[in-house]
């Protein structure tokens, strides 16, 4: 009997992949992103100079142009750019995962509660609070929070989360206010179901599509924001490698020793680009097609 559920999911995944893969660029984006994840995980094994990702200084080799040994050159401290960039992928990806893991549940739950109680006190409180945060430019907000806290990876995660949560709250809120009028929700209410059941078992499963699509695109934004924070020195501190810090360090050396700034910047672009390409595919995946 359980086989029906299995075949249903199998077919569902197959169909979703079909829709996703119709967009060739999305598949490229996905491949690229998977490559980046693997590179981050396998960093100690695939980089030529893993020690350069830590406290290593060799000023003689400082700011060397890219050559055979150092594929992407060295930075001002003589550290291999390629190795540092690969290691820098870790905090970037970690930030994306952690921020979303924090922001999505909180924003979703708030949106569910506010949307379901539209017009009532809890709606007003939650959504006005959301609106306040939405009104502030996210980067400024993240910078402000960051500057109050000590500059660490964890704290920049908190700062970026503060800037991101209201978007999910608003997204889910908008979905809930229309879903709650669907007859299947009303049927549950008329039956006497508890609110918890209705919110999490009836309404939430129908909100997942836009949430997932947004998550894919937001991952890229989180990376950019993280890089921005560390660019101004409010994120991961040296000597731990962070793309934003690396761009900052290299900025002073432009345009002569361009590789120090350009390669980390390019990596950021690559990460965000791959995520945006995936985002297009995810959106298509969730679009119901006429069959």
């Amino acid at each position: 009997m359980k086989s029906n559920k299995f075949t249903f999911w199998k077919e569902n995944i197959g169909r979703s992949w079909y829709k996703f893969s119709r967009n060739k660029l999305s598949v490229i984006g996905l491949a690229l992103f998977i490559l980046l994840i693997l590179a981050a995980i396998l960093a100690p094994f695939i980089t030529p100079f893993p020690k350069h990702a830590g406290n290593y200084v060799d000023l003689i080799l400082g700011s060397q142009a890219p050559d055979g040994t150092h594929l992407l050159g060295t930075d001002i401290y003589g550290r291999d750019m390629f190795s540092r960039i690969i290691f820098a992928l870790r905090p970037a990806l970690l930030m994306g995962i952690m921020v979303l893991a924090l922001v999505v549940p909180i924003g979703t739950i708030l949106g569910l509660i506010a949307g379901y109680h539209k017009g009532k006190f809890s709606d007003h409180i939650i959504m006005r609070f959301t609106d306040i945060f939405l009104g502030l430019p996210p980067l400024i907000l993240a910078l402000a929070v960051s500057s109050i806290l000590k500059p660490t990876l964890t704290n920049s995660m908190i700062a970026v989360s503060v800037a991101f949560w209201p978007w999910y709250s608003r997204l889910v809120y908008n979905m809930v206010i229309s879903i709650k009028n669907e007859h299947y929700v009303i049927s549950s209410e008329l039956l006497g179901e508890s609110k918890i059941h209705i919110l999490f078992k009836e309404i939430l499963p129908n909100c997942l599509s836009p949430i997932f699509t947004k998550m894919t695109l937001d991952f890229g934004w989180v990376i950019i924001m993280t890089a921005s924070l560390s660019f101004v020195g409010l994120g991961e501190q040296p000597p731990d490698p962070s793309l934003g810090t690396m761009v900052a360090e290299g900025a002073r050396l432009l345009p002569d020793k361009w590789w120090v700034a350009i390669y980390p910047a390019f990596t950021i672009v690559l990460m965000v680009l791959s995520l945006n390409l995936i985002g297009d595919g995810v959106r298509d995946m969730f679009t119901a097609t006429e069959e």
Binding site: G14, R15, Y18, K19, T289, E291
Partner: peptide
């Protein structure tokens, strides 16, 4: 026919 996931709908 319509081309869809899994083949064609005739």
């Amino acid at each position: 026919d319509y081309k869809v996931y899994g083949g064609y709908l005739k």
